[in-house]
Simulated assay, not measured.
Amino acid sequence: MSTLQEVGERASWRCWLCDEPVDPDMSVNDPRGPSIDSVLTAKKAKAKGGVERLAHRACNTKKGAVKPVVPWPDKLFVVDPAPIIGVVEQLSRKGGRVAVARCPEKSDAQQASEWLLDRLSRLAPDLRVESRIDAAGGAFLLVLYTP
């Protein structure tokens, strides 16, 4: 088990859920204070291992024992966005390609692609992923794939 300092430095002091900065000097009892979110998958439970990620105390508490949701920002114009955590899990497990959103304009898809690749670089730093924008029936499909 890592210390809060080690987990925080690994995460560059950013909450893995909301992607906002976490103040390392704030009290761990404050809702915006740092906490460690431990993820234990069934496979890793057998090995007694897990993943430790930095989260605000409130983000970690809000998530509870349910599957976390990393939201798409309101500033992006995306239709039918895929759940980001599910996409990361699928690409980590199987690789391949996943259509993650439809956008009405190519520029919307490009903005969404830039945001998503940047967000995934912090959410799943070990996952190598690229994006592609495909024209699809009068809209543009944002696709993530593992090279």
Rank of each mutant, 00 (worst) to 15 (best):
M1L: 08
M1R: 04
S2V: 08
Q5F: 09
V7F: 05
G8F: 04
D19F: 15
E20P: 10
S27Q: 11
N29V: 14
D30R: 00
P31I: 01
P31G: 00
P31Y: 06
R32N: 10
P34A: 13
P34Y: 03
P34L: 03
S35I: 09
S35F: 06
I36W: 03
T41Q: 11
A45I: 12
A45C: 11
A47L: 14
G50N: 01
E52Q: 14
R53V: 15
H56Q: 03
H56C: 00
R57K: 13
A58Q: 10
T61H: 11
T61V: 02
T61Q: 07
K67C: 04
P68F: 04
V69M: 02
P71M: 05
W72Q: 04
W72N: 01
W72A: 05
P73Y: 03
D74W: 04
F77D: 01
F77K: 09
V79L: 11
D80V: 04
G86C: 05
G86W: 10
V88K: 04
V88Y: 09
L91H: 09
A99F: 01
R102E: 10
K106I: 03
S107R: 15
S107N: 10
A109Y: 02
Q110L: 13
Q111V: 04
E114V: 12
E114N: 08
W115C: 12
W115F: 07
W115M: 11
L127Q: 00
V129F: 02
R132H: 12
R132S: 15
I133W: 06
A136D: 14
A139D: 11
F140Q: 11
L144H: 06
